[in-house]
Amino acid sequence: MNIDLPKVINAYFKADKKGSPQALADLFTPDAVVVDEGNTYTGRDAIRQWMMNASTKYTYTVEPFAQAEEGGRTIITSHLVGNFPGSPVDLRYFFVLKSGMIAELEIVL
């Protein structure tokens, strides 16, 4: 299913697919916060490191298939398949956007 993602969220998934931590980090505000697997990463440097670790630790593909809005957040549900425990899985990505950039991202089951 093709969905019409907001521009910066579409760019996020493209950067993730290419395994480009710097391109991905550049989509976030300087003080952005990412919460993933119980860990919190604050700022572009921490977000870049988070992506570098994820892309070296696992091989995966992610395919967004649903979009919703709730409480000022854009929720993208994606199918994730890879060499990680529990694969495949559907994850929800809770994005908060600010001035065309990602200010917050929380990834949950």
Rank of each mutant, 00 (worst) to 15 (best):
N39W: 08
V62I: 13
N2Y: 09
P6S: 05
Y41M: 05
V108I: 12
G71I: 14
A68Y: 12
T59G: 14
G43V: 04
F84L: 13
D45R: 13
I107Y: 04
F13L: 08
D36M: 04
I75F: 01
M51Y: 03
S99C: 07
V34C: 12
E70C: 08
K57S: 14
E104F: 03
V108C: 09
A54F: 15
T29Q: 02
F28V: 03
W50Q: 05
G71P: 14
P6R: 00
G72D: 08
A54W: 14
L109R: 13
A46W: 02
E106Y: 04
V96A: 14
G100V: 10
F94E: 09
A66V: 06
P30R: 02
E69T: 14
N83Y: 13
V35M: 11
P88Y: 11
E69L: 13
I107E: 03
P6Y: 01
A66N: 13
L5D: 07
E70F: 06
F84S: 13
G19I: 08
W50A: 02
T40P: 01
V62N: 00
S78M: 03
A68R: 14
V8Q: 02
I107S: 03
V89W: 04
D90G: 08
T59A: 14
G86D: 10
V33N: 01
D31Q: 06
A25V: 01
A15Y: 05
E69P: 08
T42C: 11
T29H: 02
A66Y: 09
G19A: 10
A54M: 15
E104Y: 05
M51D: 02
D36H: 05
V89S: 06
D4T: 13
F28G: 00
S20N: 06
P64D: 04
G72I: 07
L27Q: 01
M101I: 05
A54R: 15
R44I: 03
T61H: 10
V8R: 01
A68E: 15
V33A: 04
D4S: 15
I102S: 02
V81P: 00
E63V: 06
